[in-house]
Design a protein around this nucleic acid. Sequence first.
DNA 1: AAATATTTTTAGATTAATCTAAAAATATTT
DNA 2: AAATATTTTTAGATTAATCTAAAAATATTT
Lengths: 223, 223
Amino acid sequence: MLQSLSLTEENYLKAIYHLSDHGSENVSTNSLAESMSTTPASVNDMMKKLSNKNLIGYKKYKGATLLPDGRASALHVIRKHRLWEVFLVDKLNFKWDEVHEIAEQLEHIKSPLLVERLNEFLGKPVIDPHGDPIPDENGVVKEVTKAPLSELKPGSKGVLVNVSNDDRALLRHLDKLQLSLGSKIELIERIDFDGSVCIQVDGQVNHFISQTIAGNLLLTVLD
Amino acid sequence: MLQSLSLTEENYLKAIYHLSDHGSENVSTNSLAESMSTTPASVNDMMKKLSNKNLIGYKKYKGATLLPDGRASALHVIRKHRLWEVFLVDKLNFKWDEVHEIAEQLEHIKSPLLVERLNEFLGKPVIDPHGDPIPDENGVVKEVTKAPLSELKPGSKGVLVNVSNDDRALLRHLDKLQLSLGSKIELIERIDFDGSVCIQVDGQVNHFISQTIAGNLLLTVLD
DNA sequence: AAATATTTTTAGATTAATCTAAAAATATTT
DNA sequence: AAATATTTTTAGATTAATCTAAAAATATTT
């Protein structure tokens, strides 16, 4: 069972997770203070507290690392954050870039049943609107890689996370195809003749796209 | 514009609203302490604070009343609470009696756009799963009355909030008709011959019900 | 390696929300 | 109306999360 933590404690654990590259490195007091918009002194106090609760490992002047319980709590909060982001985008028609602040609040709602039901309601999504993976019930995170659409295999699904060219004509064309950051794309087939690809967008429309355009669309894909 | 309030301040205003019969009476320190599960001393401190912010009227030993700003804030929180309850029941298949605690948390999420989108997503509901009215964007609350289904006029819509008879056979029958507390019922027509009624349940199935049964089903109806 | 700069910790305060215990005011009973 | 009971307020503490300023430790430069 996860410990019941204060909103602040949850935010610290989350920040440590993100700053430590998914929990693999030590996080310095100063970097945490900056990312939490607080002072090193406050961070220091909180480190002692989290350390006493066995959520983080902490040695004076050596920074913090997540211990298993802290990591589990961090991942649970991140899971909720990303599920709510999917809800906001898929169900309430928010844009990709409008959801973060609201999800920062929703992620702290405490109800295991709510998370379970929300997950089902959303169709058990595995990637959020930013292309980041959603940790599962047990805190297991699928790794994602970023690659241009032109390099995917048929059958792969991903989320459009970057357009590596800001040519007006390209952006206008993407707009016409209803392709924008956060769009879910499945590669249906590649035409060997010219490398152009057929894609399905958000599980609905199919489009053909040239190899050149496909090369400029950066997706995150599950490994 | 509504002031930005702490979670605790919002809860106090909400409690005052409920205990004062929608803001019409003075609320005593002791009754507030009981309803908030805290001490009269804590309530007293908070009353001073809310009074300084012009949210409540407060005179020593005389209890508290909501001032316009406090009332508006209370109603906004109640609006969010009830909208989220509709979400939990209609979209996530929670039972009407499982949603209160979760809604107590969700009601404090701050995002006007979220409330607006949620309202639209839910089809602009006017009554929550408990049959209570949902205040509108401007804090206007429609009054509801309770009446047995047998007394409604054709065309009226309401929510089943009580069954005034616990006979096994009746409950089993209601179960068979998928009628339970929180069901949305529209009276389609009344048969003059025997007073039996045709109702639509949750906007989907139609059923015929005898006058006797209809007399035992208590609904809340918008005036 | 000594001097300097940077980072981190400690010491002591502050704010919001809470508490207990005692004092003061109000309400009720006799 | 005096005595008693109840309610409310005040005074002074406590806890979580924060802060500033100074001290201590570590890292970097010369």
